[in-house]
Design a protein around this nucleic acid. Sequence first.
DNA 1: AAAGCGGGGAC
DNA 2: GTCCCAGCTTT
Length: 368
Amino acid sequence: MSGKTRALTNAEKNQSESALGGARLHRALLAWFDVEKRPLPWRATSDPYAIWMSEVMSQQTRVETVIPYYEKFLTAYPTVRTLAEAPVEDVLGLWSGLGYYRRARMLHRTAQEVVARHDGAFPRDKAALESLPGIGPYTAGAVASIAFQEPASVVDGNVVRVFARLFNDDTDGRAPAGLAHFRKRADALVSADRPGDWNQALMELGATVCTPREPRCLLCPLATVCEARSAGTARDLPRLTKKAKPVAAAFDALVVAAPNRVLLAERKADGLFGGLLEPPLFDTAPTLLEAAQQARLAIGDSLGIVQHTLSHRKLSIATHRAVHVLDVMPPLPVSGAYVALHAVEWPLPKDTRVSTLARKILALALET
DNA sequence: AAAGCGGGGAC
DNA sequence: GTCCCAGCTTT
């Protein structure tokens, strides 16, 4: 209540200051960025395709995690055309382990659209970029500003945190309305001269100095003008509504093995782990037993429970093993979540399209 | 507005 | 264990 009133007051005050304070802010932050920026691989290119690739991979994912995937993809698919022409199965395989697999499917679709509808050249403005699959307000602003020097703003988790502290603004940074509020702040402050560097500098500051738990204010180029620092509220900002806790769910996995192969089920293209391969999961033990009986598979006791937590589910997978020649596919009745069964080489070929969860299940069943 | 959608690093 | 990360899409 009182917090909201205070936030609005700050917002109004800062808008009146921004015309005067903007230039100083830009000088201080950009000078810091010029010296302190990390040498990330996508900072050595101006290719919109490469910039876009790095931004999609970076959605909800730490920069250090992204780097090896970025290198792999640029080597395998150096141009948007090579990506567009690749089988989506291969794209999912290179993406294996990075998570949020819908991003890979949309990456592929967008590459095909850019080739088919834009003759292989990315749209140069934020609005047109935002109409492509998997490109929302953040990614469109990032590509437009970094690759095309459009004075478009970006708001990610870092920018919310930096602005919330800089302006001592306790607007909820996770609610849609709060995000819109911070986008207005970002629009008002984006640099006309160096929009791409300005956006990256805000994010770099959030990632390396203005960190969530213990901000390193002594190293901050904006400490002298930071309102949360003078108010002593930096550690309590930004205000973020709690996320729902992952819900527990249990399944039984069946690993059917031959000497050099393993049976994997292909999930339908959309939804959880869409398009990936995995040992078939059954929603209850009786379902597993009945399926095994129909396929004339003798299954042993559970080898153990694989625990795997996603953003919205806390999974417990009781893992079982059976042996079959796999020269002919056993008639295993699986759930509607699967569209096909495959006998896959074991150990798995490099870049097989499986989740980290599937790798955990296979490791328990076949490497112990 | 809320939920679905991965995995891992930092504390 | 908790938090959250260079978010987007669907309901």
